[in-house]
């Protein structure tokens, strides 16, 4: 089993909210998770479920109420140790917009302790990778949202860390920028970089991640790999044509009906009933339960109120 790079044990986080009538809000309740070397870990949850709070606790940006954060085998390492091996790309790339793209990368690269020759080379490489070479000497105030996001990812990729934490990396981006982000993540993941991606874009997590954790109302409710979804819940779609009454539970498609059945036994029964009604089966396909289906089943569509 591969090495655990980032772990939290029984993580609790409680906020006090309100100026006059102060009340306590439990943002995280006994969260346990492990990010192993080579993982592309997708961290899913609704708005207010506790995703960003978990990240902030993991990175030491907010003190934890109870529990432990262990990074690279060390409990709550100081920033000068933690961030030499881990980098962070915040939501909406929060970088001072008075700097140029090149200045941002150069300043942050120096903070990472990179020597000047390597820094210059990496700045040029990451700018080219994120398709920002032409805009490198323009101030970020003149950048589009997508370009700022790309600068945020570029500064996280710059020192070639072991683990990169991304907080909602593709939020509000157009499809082409999203695709570019995904390609870069896949390229670095293939080279051995571990990712922890906080997102609620389920399709992207499904495509890019090999492990997924779902948090709901401050609790980590499940951890799985997207591949497990098929084997755990296989079902079959039966497409058929019939002149008379369709089978109960069928959905009408263009020129045929579709019935979802749980297993091969139910398929045999449905096929017999279709034949009895004078119909013909045109296709049988395995329905893969999508992460979205699973997420909604686990989390439901209730409104979550939280910090």
């Amino acid at each position: 089993m591969s090495e655990v790079l980032l772990e939290c044990r029984d993580l609790d986080k409680t906020y006090t909210v309100g100026k006059l009538r102060r009340r306590r809000v439990e943002a995280l309740k006994k969260v346990n998770l492990q990010v192993r070397r080579g993982d592309v870990y997708g961290f899913l949850g609704q708005n207010g479920a506790g995703k960003t709070t978990t990240i902030r606790c993991l990175l030491g940006l907010t003190p934890v109420t109870h529990g432990k954060v262990i990074a690279f085998g060390e409990a709550s390492p100081p920033p000068e140790v933690l961030f030499t091996r881990l980098t962070y790309c915040p939501e909406e790339s929060n970088v001072f917009t008075g700097l140029t793209g090149r200045e941002v990368l150069t300043i942050y690269g120096r903070m990472y302790g990179m020597d000047e020759a390597r820094l210059r080379k990496r700045v040029d490489e990451t700018l080219a990778l994120m398709n920002l070479t032409e805009a490198a000497d323009r101030r970020l105030s003149g950048y589009s949202k997508g370009m700022r996001q790309r600068i945020g990812l570029a500064q996280a990729l710059l020192p070639e860390p072991e683990l990169i934490v991304l907080d909602e990396p593709t939020r509000g981006l157009d499809p082409i920028s999203r695709r570019r982000f995904r390609d870069v993540i896949e390229q670095y993941a293939a080279a051995g970089t571990t990712f922890f991606i906080n997102s609620h874009t389920l399709s992207e997590v499904e495509r890019s991640c090999n492990r997924v954790g779902i948090i709901d109302q401050g609790r980590l409710v499940t951890e799985l790999s997207p591949g497990e979804l098929v084997s755990e819940n296989p079902s079959l779609d039966v497409d058929y044509r019939v002149d008379g009454e369709p089978l109960p539970g069928s959905e009408q498609r263009d020129r045929h009906w579709r019935l979802n059945v749980a297993d091969t036994r139910a398929l045999a029964q449905a096929t017999a009933q279709i034949a009895d009604r004078g119909g013909t089966v045109t296709a049988v396909t395995t329905r893969r339960e999508s992460l979205e289906d699973y997420f909604i089943k686990i989390v439901g569509d209730q409104e979550v109120v939280g910090p």
């Binding site: 990175l59 940006l61 100081p78 920033p79 000068e80 140790v81 933690l82 961030f83 030499t84 980098t87 962070y88 915040p90 909406e92 790339s93 929060n94 970088v95 001072f96 942050y108 903070m111 990472y112 302790g113 945020g152 500064q155």
Partner: peptide, 15 residues
Amino acid sequence: NAQTARTLFTKPVRR
């Protein structure tokens, strides 16, 4: 307030 601190405080620099 501008949340640029998150980018700054996640560098290997002591507080």
